[in-house]
Structures are given as C-alpha cells and as structure tokens.
Amino acid sequence: MACVSPDGKPTESGAKMLRSLKAGAKLPENVAEDTGLPLFRVRSGLRELAQAGYANSKGDKYEISPKGVELLAKL
C-alpha cells in the first residue's frame, strides 16, 4: 500500500491525507489542495485508507474513521 506501510503505520502522504480529513468530510479534490499531492495519488490513497479502515467513503467524499483518529494521535 502506498499510504499505509506493512507495519500498519501511515506513510507521510497517508498521514497528510488523514490530517486533511480531520477537519471534516472532503472531496479528493479538496484533499489534494490541502496536501499538495497530485489528485491521482489522493484518489488512490483515500481508497487505500478506506480499505484499511482509517477513512470512510461518504458518497463522493471521504471522512476520517475513529481508527484513523486513533492512528493520528499516535504519530
């Protein structure tokens, strides 16, 4: 995974995306603006974070999950 390492920790880009989601549910376009990451990376990264349980998809938007909040607190 690009956003979550095999040891379960988010990568730098994964952590950036989760921090961006802390402010509330966002479209990938908004997360790309916040993080400065290319949109394609944000789209694939958010999908991975959701698969790993750190984010939830809400229609076209994504929001951080309780597991994601817990993870960010440990960083």
């Binding site: 995974m1 690009a2 949109l39 394609f40 990376r41 694939s44 990264g45």
Partner: peptide
C-alpha cells in the same frame, strides 16, 4: 511504485 492506481484516478487530467 506509488501504490495501486486505477485509470479513473486520472479523470480530469
């Protein structure tokens, strides 16, 4: 090398 990517991730670019 930057994770799992779909073609649709590039929509709009």
């Amino acid at each position: 090398t930057q994770g799992k990517i779909k073609l649709e991730d590039y929509k709009g670019s």
